[in-house]
Design a binder for these strands. Structure first.
Lengths: 194, 194
DNA sequence: ACCTGAACACCGTTCAAGT
DNA sequence: ACCTGAACACCGTTCAAGT
C-alpha cells in the first residue's frame, strides 16, 4: 500500500517514544515502514521538515481554547498545556525546541500568537506583546528540556516516594518561573489581577 | 609535536567560527590537526566532552566580576556579557545551549551560581534563587539562539542601514525580556531599586 | 603515554531507473 | 505519481598494534 504523511509521522512518533530522538533517523524510520530511505524524500523535503511534522503532532494537544479567560490564566493554561504535551513524548521538549529553532513547526507559531494575544490583553503594545510571547516560550522550552533530561538521567534508582516528591517539586518550580514572568508583565503594564 | 587539550579546543573554535557547528566533527577536527580521529579520544572521552571544553572557551569572557553591584545591575551585566560571548562565535549560542543541556560546561554552572547569588541578594530564598537563576539562563540562551539563527538567515541581502536598525532593535528586545524577569523578581520579593 | 590504521555500524541526501 | 537501488560523502567510536 501507499505511504502517506500521517503514517510516516505516526511511525516517527513511535520510534521517538520507544527509543528516543537519537534513534529517530531517516534510515531507521524507512526500515520501520518497510520502505527505502529515498521514499521518504518524496513526501518530505528533508529531515528537518519531517521533524517539524512530528513536532506539530506532539503539540496538537497543547493547542487549547482560552477564550473568556483573563490574561494571567490564559498564559498559565497555555504554558501548562505546552509543558504537558512536551513531557508526554520521549525527548519531546528537545525535538520541539529544535523544530522551533529551525522554524519548522507551524503549531509553535500559533502558540506564540496565542501568548502574544494574552500579553496584549495585559496591556502590552504590539512589539512588547511579541517579545513577551517569545520570552514565555523560551522559558517553557528551556525549563522542560532541562526537566526531561534530568528525568531520563534519574530513570534508574529513583524510589517511587522520592520521585513523586521531586515531581511535585518540578511543578512548583515551573510555576515559580512562570509567575516571575507574569508578575513582570503586570508590573510593566500596570495591569491588575481580577 | 604532541597534541594538547588547548590546541584541540582552539582548532575546534576556529572551525566553528569559519564553517559553523555543522562542520565541527571529530573527523574534520582531526584532519585540521593532522592527526588520526582516534587521537582525539585519548584527550577527550567523547564529542560531548570536547564540545563542553569549547563551550567553556566561548564563555570565558562572560565570567565577569559583579562585586559591589546591586542585584539588578549584577543580573543585567551578567546576562549582557553572556549574550555578547555567545554572539561573538558562529553558532556560539547553539553550542553552549547544547553543552548546558548535556551538563558538560563548568562555566555555565558558575554563571548560574552568580545569577543565583544576585537573586538571593534580591531577597529570594535558596530554592527560589536557583529557579530564578535557571529561568534567567533559559531566557538568555533561548533569545540568543533565536537571534543568532535569524542573523545567519538574514546574512544575505541586508542593507547596512537596515541591519544596524535591526540590531539595536534586538538589543531593546533583549533588554525588554530581561526587565520582565527582573521586575517579576522585584515584585515577588518586595525589593526596591536604589 | 600517546598515537595510527583500520574497522564497525551507522548517517542524510540524490537520482537514474523502474512501475 | 510514487518508489527502489545504489551510490556519494560523510559520521562517532573502538581498539589492537605500534613508537
Amino acid at each position: 500500500m501507499q505511504l502517506h504523511k500521517p503514517d510516516v509521522v505516526d511511525a516517527a512518533a513511535a520510534i521517538l517514544d520507544n527509543y528516543g530522538i537519537a534513534d529517530l533517523s531517516m534510515r531507521r524510520l524507512a526500515r520501520e515502514l518497510n520502505v527505502s530511505p529515498g521514499a521518504l524524500y518524496w513526501h518530505f523535503a528533508n529531515k528537518q521538515e519531517l521533524l517539524g511534522a512530528v513536532a506539530d503532532h506532539i503539540l496538537r494537544p497543547a493547542v487549547i481554547d482560552v477564550a473568556g479567560l483573563n490574561w494571567r490564566h490564559a498564559i498559565q493554561d497555555i504554558c501548562a498545556a505546552l509543558r504537558d504535551a512536551l513531557l508526554s513524548h520521549t525527548d519531546g521538549a528537545e525535538l520541539v525546541s529544535a523544530s522551533f529553532a529551525a522554524g519548522q513547526s507551524e503549531t509553535v507559531t500559533d502558540i506564540v500568537a496565542q501568548l502574544a494575544a494574552a500579553a496584549a490583553d495585559a496591556g502590552a503594545r504590539n512589539d512588547d506583546a511579541d517579545s513577551t510571547a517569545r520570552t514565555l516560550l523560551y522559558y517553557v522550552l528551556g525549563f522542560t528540556v532541562d526537566e526531561q533530561s534530568r528525568r531520563q538521567w534519574d530513570a534508574a534508582g529513583a524510589l517511587s516516594d522520592e520521585q513523586s516528591v521531586l515531581m511535585s517539586d518540578t511543578d512548583r518550580q515551573f510555576a515559580f518561573g512562570l509567575r516571575l514572568l507574569i508578575d513582570g508583565l503586570a508590573a510593566h503594564e500596570g495591569a491588575t489581577a481580577p
